[in-house]
């Protein structure tokens, strides 16, 4: 005790740094909590119905499971499976063509939306147009514009997916373009190449793998979007899904969902593999092999 008394100056030097103010983060947290509470209070959802998840849902799920495990080679189940699979394939076709349309439309647009390849004003305008396209749900696009023009069916769906894809694809691609190494551009400028030639030989080779990977990524998203467009009559498996739920044919609902899940998961896996391959580039596996061989030697 006496020792402590003999060292009064230490007290001053041991003042601890004060922690930085937490006011900002606390305020943010409170505001967010208030927003959520307000939403819960206002939404007039019947929360008691949540109990149905434990009472009703298991019964329906069991019914769905029965449909899945029925012998698929007997009528009418074989026909149900074939029908669902055929419609899912139609959804995939819509997604593929939609992605293709989106790719073709967004490729030139992305150069207009990149600040290193287009003038400022053009970039700002193009970006806002892309943002507006992104804001429109595909299903609304199908309902409002594509079905009136192309009629009911998968063509309208593919068109809706195509136009809908331009928003994200244009944005992602333009960001890839903005991320390029400027060196080759400068070199081509110094070699007397025109603006268009500079894009073709300095920008495109640098960004094409990324952009193609974005196309595949968008294809994966479009599979999901294409699976529901049928609800408004724009083709694909969505059309039958809506009818089945209205008719409460749980067995068929079950097998249709299984078809959607299995096909989507498989196509996702393939697409992801191809994307990795494209990003790594054809030279990369060879180079990696060379390294491995060198290590082995």
């Amino acid at each position: 005790m006496s020792a402590r008394k003999t060292h009064p100056p230490t007290q001053e030097s041991t003042t601890r740094p004060r922690p930085p103010s937490k006011v900002r983060s606390t305020v943010w947290l409170l505001v967010s909590a208030l927003i959520v509470l307000f939403a819960i209070w206002q939404v007039n959802a019947d929360w008691s119905r949540f109990a149905n998840i434990f009472t009703e849902a298991p019964r329906y799920i069991a019914l769905m499971g029965q449909g899945v495990i029925e012998n698929p080679f007997t009528m009418p189940w074989s026909e149900y499976w074939t029908k669902s699979l055929a419609l899912m394939i139609e959804s995939l076709q819509m997604a593929w063509i939609g992605t293709l349309i989106g790719a073709v439309l967004s490729f030139p647009v992305s150069f207009l939306a990149a600040s290193n390849t287009a003038p400022r004003v053009v970039v700002i305008v193009t970006r806002q147009v892309l943002n507006i396209i992104r804001a429109v749900p595909e299903i609304v696009l199908a309902l409002v514009f594509m079905i009136p023009i192309f009629g009911l069916g998968p063509l309208a769906g593919a068109m809706a997916l195509g136009v809908g894809s331009v928003g994200t694809l244009g944005k992602l691609s333009s960001e890839a373009i903005e991320g390029i190494d400027r060196g080759p551009l400068e070199a081509l400028d110094a070699a007397g190449a025109s603006k268009l030639q500079q894009l073709r030989w300095a920008v495109v080779p640098q960004v094409l793998p990324e952009i193609v990977a974005f196309w595949l990524y968008r294809f994966e998203i479009n599979i999901r979007a294409g699976a529901i467009l049928g609800i408004v009559g724009a083709g694909g498996i969505g059309s039958i899904l809506d009818q089945l739920f209205n008719a409460r044919e749980w067995g068929r609902i079950g097998l249709t969902l299984v078809v959607i899940i299995v096909v989507t998961v498989i196509v996702d896996q393939i697409s992801a593999k191809v994307r990795q391959r494209i990003i790594a580039g054809p030279g990369a596996p060879a180079a990696a092999k060379q390294v491995r061989e060198r290590v082995a030697v």
Binding site: I139, R224, A225, A227, I228, I231, G238, L241, D242, F245, L257, I260, I261, T264, V265, D268
Partner: peptide
């Protein structure tokens, strides 16, 4: 599996 079902399918 969760990701393979589209939003509207969950809705239904």
């Amino acid at each position: 599996v969760l990701r393979s079902l589209p939003d509207l399918a969950w809705g239904l």
